[in-house]
């Protein structure tokens, strides 16, 4: 898990800016995630992390700048189109289908890019069900499989959302605060799962996190945002010593 310079980035933002009315949420952010790495995105509350996520995953339009995924430009693509290309994400405010069971939730997130029009009008295929079963096992959700997602604990819902993101077998997964509201035991499980996926299946991750231990245990590289601008970039160890970062986090 070295910083893979020389490789071309998997996801890249060039000079990304986003304004809400007169307020600049992001200004000219240059940003890249390389294949095979686990990268962290940190910054104080309101620094624009989720906005950057939303822009990268195309949930929000950028005001200026360009976004590239796997070398092709996706600046004006729709969210479902980038999902087909192999980008998946979770949300800070958990978005699972609350009135449906865990099992149904999983089946609703298949690999859409590979679904042909004829399959669209057939019942869910066995392959999709097998994958859902496997992921439910992998994420320790077996015993709640038939519960409605709205009745799960916060941690279980986070796991379910990660499972739904993994269903289409994406190459890059953006996790927005995967550990918030999750109990410490489950955090260790999530950490372990991310590591397994990264090392065995070479999935690339980009994490927004407030849990600094989580970041330093998992990430090879961390990007720091402050007031919508890039503040620093480096290994977790380097950033721990960076005065500016410490200032931004603990200073004010």
């Amino acid at each position: 898990m070295n910083t893979p310079h020389g490789q071309s980035p998997l996801l890249e933002g060039r000079q990304v800016s986003k304004n809400f009315g007169g307020l600049a949420a992001l200004s000219n952010v240059d940003f890249a995630v390389y294949p095979g790495e686990v990268m962290g995105l940190i910054g104080p509350n309101g620094s624009g992390k989720t906005t950057l996520f939303d822009c990268l995953s195309r949930v929000q339009e950028v005001s200026a700048g360009q976004i590239f995924f796997k070398g092709s430009e996706i600046t004006h693509k729709k969210p479902y189109q980038v999902a087909h290309m192999g980008l998946a994400r979770t949300f800070q405010v958990i978005r699972v289908y609350r009135k449906l069971t865990v099992w149904e939730n999983m089946l609703l997130s298949p690999q859409w890019g590979k679904i042909t029009p004829s399959q669209l009008f057939k019942p869910t295929s066995e392959a999709i069900k097998a994958r859902a079963r496997e992921l439910i096992g992998f994420l320790l959700l077996d015993h709640v499989m038939d519960l409605k997602a709205g009745n799960l604990s916060g941690g279980q819902r986070r796991l379910l959302e990660i499972g739904m993101a993994l269903m289409p077998d994406p190459d890059l997964i953006l996790l927005d605060e995967a550990t918030s509201g999750v109990n410490p035991t489950l955090i260790e499980e999530i950490k372990d799962r991310i590591r397994t996926l990264n090392q065995q299946q070479h999935k690339t991750f980009l994490l927004i996190e407030h849990n600094i231990h989580f970041i330093s245990d998992l990430c090879s590289r961390v990007f720091v945002l402050n007031y919508g601008e890039k503040l620093a970039e480096g290994t977790p160890a380097e950033l721990m010593e960076n005065e500016e970062v410490i200032e931004a986090y603990f200073g004010a």
């Binding site: 999902a83 449906l100 057939k122």
Partner: peptide
Amino acid sequence: QFGASLIAIREDEVGAEMRG
């Protein structure tokens, strides 16, 4: 699958769009 996707849209349209 189509019918199931309609339910997904009803339950959470942004999530459904992001899941492809």
